[in-house]
């Protein structure tokens, strides 16, 4: 088990964004995290990776408690995320962007360059390595997000809607990238709205709604779960 969340609670003023969310992530798996808008998916990522402090609960990573550790410490321990709203370092080149991540593991520029180059090859951005990050389109920016995170040589990667807003034809490419990274030994938690992609990729799915975990299980089971259908489609009045 690589990650264990034990009753994570996060409040924003009076709103309970996450209410006692618990789950476990098996090492080497791809887990999908779904839920309607505002369900708390990104907040959950923010809490796991130390961007936001949690109000209650505990988080364990590789058996070590990491509750409220800073995100740079977690990156060194081997957990990294991508952002739904991409955050490239605009004035730097694509390669330099990835190198920032690589410096998390190595000191010299040469080895950082090697790691970064590998990461760019994995996501298919190698051709664009000398381009300024600000010149990338949205699909490429999402790939760069993955490459930056992958350059830190993570054990666990949190991917936040890497397929949102890209061309349908690119979704397949992105799915393959996610699978390739997983096959290289990285556990992945995936937030996604594109059901087709998430169904085919994830072994297990966790469903959030209004900050609560309402379902968890194999993809085929979850879609038949009545709570999930209720959350997505509402219920008919009797």
């Amino acid at each position: 088990m690589i990650l264990r969340a034990d009753a994570i609670t996060k409040r924003f003023g009076g709103i309970c964004a996450l209410d006692k969310v618990s789950f476990e992530i098996e090492e080497g798996s791809i887990v999908g995290l779904i839920g309607p808008n505002g369900a708390g998916k990104t907040t959950l990522f923010n809490c796991i990776n130390g961007t936001l402090p949690i109000d209650d609960g505990r988080i364990y990573f590789c058996g070590e408690e990491i509750t409220n550790k800073r995100s740079y410490e977690l990156a060194r321990l081997g957990m990294c995320r991508s952002y739904q709203i991409v955050k490239p370092f605009r004035s730097m080149t694509v390669l330099q962007n990835a190198m920032v991540g690589a410096f998390c593991r190595v000191k010299s520029r040469k080895s950082a360059q090697e790691i970064a180059t590998e990461a760019l090859e994995t996501v298919g951005l190698y051709e664009k390595r000398d381009e300024k990050a600000s010149n990338l389109n949205i699909g490429e920016s999402k790939k760069l997000e993955i490459a930056k995170a992958f350059s830190t040589k993570p054990k666990l990667l949190l991917l936040d809607e890497v397929m949102a807003g890209i061309l349908p034809s690119e979704v397949k490419v992105m799915s393959k990238i996610v699978r390739d990274i997983n096959e290289s030994g990285v556990t992945i938690i995936l937030i996604e709205h594109i059901m087709e992609a998430i169904m085919s990729l994830s072994e297990r799915i966790i469903v959030l709604n209004f900050g609560e975990k309402i379902a968890e299980g194999a993809a085929s089971e979850v879609v038949r779960n009545s709570e999930v259908i209720k959350a997505y489609l509402g219920v008919e009045e009797e």
Binding site: Y72, K87, F89, M92, M99, V100, K148, S151
Partner: peptide
Amino acid sequence: EKSKLGYFLKAVGENKEAAENLGVNS
């Protein structure tokens, strides 16, 4: 410009949160 510190400094300057996510102690 060629060192780790230089890369980190630029990254922090552009986006502190994103830099920390990549293991940079800002």
